[in-house]
Amino acid sequence: MTTPDTTDRDLATFMAVARAVATEEAKHMPTTPAIERDAAALVMFTREQLAEARRAELAAQPSNVVSGAVRPSILAMVRDKVLARLNQVIAAEPSLQFAHRDFETASDDDLRSALEDALVVAGLPE
């Protein structure tokens, strides 16, 4: 609710009456082919604008792609420490998906890479 001055108030009252009359008149207005065409074009326009807004928003979001580079601190870890940390991350984030879960048979490099990816995706520190 607003408290406009006199001129604004008169105009706001006029527009409120106009909206009420227009809404009533519209109920008795026939739907012409031109109105149908305009309405269809408006639907298309709205959907295009929604899609464009979503694309712009996605483009502005930080990328989820993991670079593949393993940080030096992980490279410096021994195999047992990498395995222990990986198990901690899995326990903390059970929804994390791994392409390969048989860590015992994986190479040291693959393990370090898996830990790097898991930490990035889960957003966890070392």
Binding site: F14, A18, A22, T23, E25, D38, T46, R47
Partner: peptide, 30 residues
């Protein structure tokens, strides 16, 4: 945007177009 997507239909725009046409006409008359 989700709410817009749910409510955008041709029927809604047909009704809105008529109301806007009538509003313009009423304002022009007065």
């Amino acid at each position: 945007r989700t709410a817009i997507e749910k409510q955008v239909t041709k029927a809604m725009y047909v009704s809105l177009t008529k109301r806007v046409m009538a509003l313009i006409r009423y304002t022009e008359r007065n």
